[in-house]
């Protein structure tokens, strides 16, 4: 399968601090790829590098390359990346709280051309999230957390992305709402948009993804098909909270047999 997004040997620093070292990630056409890891593992940094918003945090790419559909994204502005078809839903939703829901969705079209296509995108977003049509004239700040996540995703879809980057979409949501968001991600992907999903909630991420990467202190520690990772003791113990005796025993054996990850500090 051809790759939509190809990140090769990427290193990123914030001043003297190394945040990513030699990270290679690939998102195949039409796939959902999950990136897992604890706090400070470098997940958000990876997304910022792709969407070219590192300068806001005074970060910079020190080595490696990022290309989308065969074209390099290095050297583009953040707006250029959006125009190229890669759109990110930021962590913590970041809806424009003082603007109406309708204006928030309109803000999603600012990076792309085509009025008629935007109208079609709006119809599609309203179909995915009917609540956004009902609340069109409300201020976005008055929506619930789950509705804000829907709005953030809808806003990104307004740009008609050919690759959607999601940063912790289940963060701070009730389990039922998180499950709904997961369903929607599946639906968006089924319509043909590849998705790169960054998550701390490994259970949700591994269920959605076909392939997953585990970042640990800025490096890729594990990678492979999502079902294999979900079945691996290492991941089960660290991310899925499996505590049954067998698994624990397996894990101890695995630990002595294979090189392992350091424990999360957080």
């Amino acid at each position: 399968m051809a790759a939509a997004l190809e990140v090769r040997a990427l290193s990123v620093g914030y001043g003297p601090v190394r945040a990513l070292r030699d990270v290679s990630v690939e998102v195949p056409e039409g796939a959902v790829v999950a990136v897992l890891g604890g706090n400070g593992a470098g997940k958000s940094t990876l997304l910022r590098a792709v969407s070219r918003t590192l300068p806001f945090q005074r970060g910079h790419v020190t080595a490696g390359s990022i290309s989308f559909e065969g074209r390099p994204l290095d050297g583009l502005s953040a707006a250029g990346v959006v125009a190229a078809g890669v759109v990110q839903v930021p962590e913590g939703r970041q809806v424009f709280a003082r603007m109406t829901v309708a204006d928030n969705l309109r803000a999603g079209t600012l990076g792309v051309r085509g009025r008629r296509e935007s109208a079609a995108a709006l119809a599609r977003v309203h179909e995915l999230f009917p609540v956004l049509a009902d609340r069109a004239q409300q201020k976005a700040g008055l929506l619930s957390g789950g509705e804000q996540q829907m709005l953030a995703m809808g806003r990104a879809l307004m740009a008609r992305p050919r690759l959607l980057l999601l940063d912790e979409p289940s963060l701070g949501l009730a389990p039922l709402m998180a499950a709904r968001i997961a369903e929607t991600i599946k639906e968006i992907n089924a319509a043909g948009t590849p998705v790169m999903l960054v998550e701390q909630n490994a259970a949700i991420a591994l269920r959605l993804a076909s392939r997953a990467y585990v970042l640990d202190v800025g490096e890729v520690a594990l990678e492979g098909p999502a079902d294999e990772l979900a079945a691996s003791d290492e991941v089960r113990r660290r991310y899925l909270g499996v505590v049954d005796e067998d698994a624990a025993q397996d894990a101890v054996q695995a630990q002595s047999a294979a090189p392992t990850l350091r424990r999360w500090s957080a």
Binding site: F56, A78, Q94, F96, M99, L110
Partner: peptide, 22 residues
């Protein structure tokens, strides 16, 4: 659209950049 871009950039520049606002 200019007004929407303006208000979005005023409220949250980084997110506005993620939406393709220059």
């Amino acid at each position: 659209s200019w007004g929407v871009a303006m208000r979005a950039a005023a409220e949250n520049p980084q997110t506005a950049a993620l939406m393709g606002v220059r």
